[in-house]
Write a protein that binds this DNA or RNA. Structure first.
Lengths: 155, 155
DNA sequence: CCTAAACTTGACTAAAACACTCAGGTATCG
DNA sequence: CGATACCTGAGTGTTTTAGTCAAGTTTAGG
């Protein structure tokens, strides 16, 4: 699994804006320079973040971008969805093309796996806030594993 | 985040071979037909799984593929690594290109996030076995979230 | 032995996704 | 009113994905 550049950049931009919180808005040009991201690409990513309502903007001279809400109210799943459309693409519907019996029906071995992974990722990103990200000793959601004890009920 | 077709197919093939465990080996042609995967692509994927030592093969007429070990000893991370090379690509080294200060050094906000996500995914796949997958009431690793309590130490 | 079944291996290719770039437009401040 | 800075859609080169193709080698069974 990979992280796309736009997601990496988007998160860096969010962190940079959050660190400036309260002061004057940050221009795309300054963000681009500081984060070492091509200007046009920066603009595109900022526009997506704005469309998703996670940052706000002010036009004209002296304008720029600032957070739409305080850092602890912004969860990272919003950022992921803003830039990629979803946290985890639905695998089952994508490969449900078999002629007589669908490979992801009730008897399917894989759908529970993908469903769990989707839930896991969704919880990971939704339980991490922007405030967690910009903390000096950063904290993201902590996750504990319970090994799959033999008869383990599905959620 | 997405699941590639080769990973989806690879897992389906593993599950199909596991269900046949003990009987005669399954030929690529039969697997291809049953799982509705193009034959040449099936061959390619089976070859990768074999190279990774997760299945074994017998050549010649009557040959085919079977598991290299019992289902409960095969963890899914082996399958992912066999087909994609790694569980989670290292983001930090990929984007460490800044001129004066690296964006993923000690002061970086993002590296803990990606490190945690990498750990999370690795634990998810390594704690799910092929046996979990082919169970009628399937069980993958259960994951519990502990919301990021305010001063939360990094692992 | 010899032929058909079946795996082995590498090279090739079309299509999609990704990572940008470009070109204009619109609003706001001083 | 003009410079600053956001707004928006369209275009493009590169890489990855998802397969295809072709020419092997090995083995079982008649």
């Amino acid at each position: 699994m990979k992280i796309t550049s736009s997601l990496e950049y988007g998160m860096r931009l969010m962190a940079a804006i959050a660190k400036e919180d309260g002061d004057a808005p940050l221009s795309a040009e300054k963000l681009s320079r500081e984060e070492n991201i091509p200007l046009d690409y920066t603009n595109q990513i900022l526009w997506k973040l704005k469309s998703a309502g996670v940052i706000s903007s002010r036009r004209g001279s002296g304008g720029g971008y600032s957070l739409a809400r305080p850092p602890h109210e912004i969860t990272m799943d919003r950022v992921v969805i803003a830039l990629e459309g979803s946290i985890f693409e639905d695998v089952c519907s994508k490969y449900a093309d078999a002629p007589r019996e669908c490979h992801h029906q009730s008897g399917c071995s894989l759908s529970p796996l993908w469903r769990r992974l989707g839930t896991l990722l969704a919880e990971f990103f939704s339980s991490t806030t922007l405030e967690d990200l910009i903390r000096r000793e950063p904290a993201t959601a902590r996750v504990e594993f319970i090994p799959p004890g033999r008869p383990l009920p599905m959620r």
